[in-house]
Design a binder for these strands. Sequence first.
RNA 1: GCGUCUAUAGCUCAGUUGGUUAGAGCGCUACCUUGACAUGGUAGAGGUCGCCUGUUCGAAUCAGGCUAGACGCACCA
Length: 928
Amino acid sequence: MDKTYEPHSIEQQCYQRWENDGLFKAKVSGDPAQQPYCILLPPPNVTGSLHMGHGFQQTIMDVLTRYHRMKGDNTLWQVGTDHAGIATQMVVERQLNALGKTRHDLGREAFVEKIWEWKEHSGGTITSQMRRMGASSDWDREVFTMDENLSKAVTEVFVKLHEDGLIYRGKRLVNWDPVLHTAVSDLEVLNEEEAGHMWHMRYPLADGSGSIVVATTRPETMLGDTAVAVHPDDERYQAYIGKQIKLPITGRLIPIIADDYVDPEFGTGCVKITPAHDFNDYDMGKRHNLPMINIFTPDAKVNDEAPEAYRGLDRFDARKAIVEQLEQDGVLVKIDDHKLKVPRGDRTGAVIEPYLTDQWYVAIEELAKPAIEAVESGEIRFVPENWSKTYYQWMHNIQDWCISRQLWWGHRIPAWYDDNGNIYVGRDEAEVRSKNGLDDSVALRQDEDVLDTWFSSALWPFATMGWPEKTPELETYLPSAVLVTGFDIIFFWVARMIMMTKRFTGKIPFKDIYITGLIRDESGDKMSKSKGNVLDPIDLIDGIDLESLVAKRTSGMMQPQLAAKIEKRTRKQFPDGIHAYGTDALRFTFAAMASTSRDINFDMGRVEGYRNFCNKIWNASRFVLMNTETEDTGRDGGELVLSLADRWIWAQFQQTLGEFEKAISEYRFDIAAQTVYEFTWNQFCDWYLELTKPVLNNDEATDAEKRGTRHTLINVLENLLRLLHPLMPFITETIWERVAPLSALNVKDGDSIMVQPFPTADAAKQDEQVLADIEWVKRFIVGIRNIRGEMDIAPSKPLSVLLRNASEEDERRLGISRTFIDRLARLEGITFLAKGEEAPASAAALVGEMEILIPMAGLIDKDAELARIAKAMEKIEKDAARTKGKLTNEKFVSNAPEDVIEKERAKLADAESQLAKLSAQRETIAAL
RNA sequence: GCGUCUAUAGCUCAGUUGGUUAGAGCGCUACCUUGACAUGGUAGAGGUCGCCUGUUCGAAUCAGGCUAGACGCACCA
């Protein structure tokens, strides 16, 4: 093995081999005894690139996939990409705009062709980045939401829902994005509070008998007012109800109506009603049969319904003009500052206009019911559990889903119109004609609109498995085991998958929903291009120099004026750019940070720490190989005598394995990572490897003993690599190829760790006695190191120690561990003191009741030792006082459970005994 | 308005059903080139667990309140 760990030199070739050898492939009709285990990848935007959130979630999915594959399950990680209607269309449209063209210049067909080209061009980015992350997904089954099969499923679902009366077309007020010229769903509208104004304007009564004042945040909509409303019980306005208003500017006559909806306390208690441009007004308009006057064009300019002076004005210019006119007319009473929620499109940021159009809707209630029940019954489980509350809250108040989009990129709605305004829905035009008896003389044209992207994503769990055909995949992999995703798409995607899958397969789509937190930057800010704090997972893997990083962060910005600030910040945070940490370190970091809390502040220090961990594994493996590669490891027989340390590390490994598997089963990847980290570094490297040296370098050790230790070294490492593999696939594969042939495993050339069985627990290797014995050994060694450290005795200086008050058990333990202790504590002599035997002045360490004495002569400073003793005593005294307090508390003794009291008593006794020894020690030293 | 979450060491975070001496990594201090590893080793410093009240023999942990922050949903024109 190379002397230094260099991730980039090992990762690429591993992955290529795995993929070429077909190791990711699901065996759909595998051994029926195998448990199916399936994970669905939330399909990323086909033209997108990998961000930290993807890297994080995909790491978790891959850990689970690799783990279950090694456990012997029939495992499938289903991948695919999403056509992402709006996002993708916008990208290509922007490219056209840069050339001074619009999509309308090209026409629909050519434009869609352009998008397909763009998809071919940049469609591979994210999937190749997934490969860099080590994703072991079945690429042979990769699908795209606009593939023929998926499109077929989309049409099928649409037609069936329509047949069942759950899809309908209607003219309603929708959220209209005037930049994109399309309707969007409620979920795609973000309401942010912004500073605005409240205009108070006086509307005169038509009969000239007076006027009332209305307050509005959108004065320009007065062009479409069709009523003024007051509360029916509002005494101020009783006389006005039923009268007519003469609307300023337009001169139209509109009624004053009474409606409970009006809050008399707010504003003036009089509300202008614009049914065609406000959702509440729309409802009121329907209640009172008011006319609905649409005053805007699709790009939110004033249309021909308005007086000529305003036609063609943008809504915000129209606002200015109207306010000006009202002021001139003397009907503008006042303007107050006012904070209001402004609805904006999540893609464009444009102010959304409520707009009357014909759209397709899914009647959602009937679909929602079984989807709610699936979670209530526990059939589907949210992890962490509290997300189910969020789910219920939305599902219980769910509104019909507007699924049509006035875009060109997406699944065309399977509806046709004849010249008489009849609508026919069918799988294709031929079916529509035959079903409805329409011959070729009837001209039909297909609906121009496409479906919301999320409509097709909602079918993901079954459409990817070949539905509507009855396939073995559907049989085997539905429901999938777990969905790993972010809370931001619970409504967009998760809920809709549950609804659609229940409806069309009768099954749930997945059993568990593991909701991950959001990856934020180190100070808790959301990563965004405009903040300039975005990290690219690939840059953490390969590294990036400062200049390239600055260039990357400041290029293609929407707000170029921020570039200087971002550059400064970047140069400060990464003066040397970003080091190459490798995929395994990054994956381990993601796993270690995946705790139950909601968001994750990404800390570069952790990646570096886990890169060091990789390095540790690398070097420990080099040590093991160095001692085994050209030696007898007992592979071909030969007697094995295991040392205390050998038996201990096996016992430790059993514990670690158990804790790891428990953590994985509970989706506690942080605990899983921490467990293996602790074992590998603090047990295997820090102790076990050191404990093998006294055996391997001991001329007096027998061949069987050396063979036993070498056998343990290589086999514990081999098992450890398999344990680590789901988390860090590349380094484990690379080392394993060298290690496995020396281990007890029967491997052939070219075998891969990723299809080996996961380590299994071996009860015979669990050994409480051995664990306790090594604990004692560690305390012995640490006690001496402690004194060395604090007394400034060089680690290289051999010491002779005396043991006082040793029990038979202490003697037994020393007997079996003498060589370990001599070497690790660097001792040249150990002498037992007989009872009552005088000891020279010494520094002392306690191991239980036994005292380890290091004679001070020439080594130890009197004052330093007194200080050390005082410090130790102070600590114990403080603790003992607390324990004593508890035990003298009558209520504690009578109420606490017996074992807790017993524990406290033992603790106190222990503390008192230690104090007695320390104080005797102090007297001896002080007397010198 | 309804709902969810967070507050623990200088920093980023763990802390399972109340019972330890409250942990880890990074950073910090001292010492160490000991034949796997300085991307390392050994030893150490550092915390009134946001604040208050309560429940309890016992609270970082449970309850109530407060403060600060994050988020979701619905909203008053």
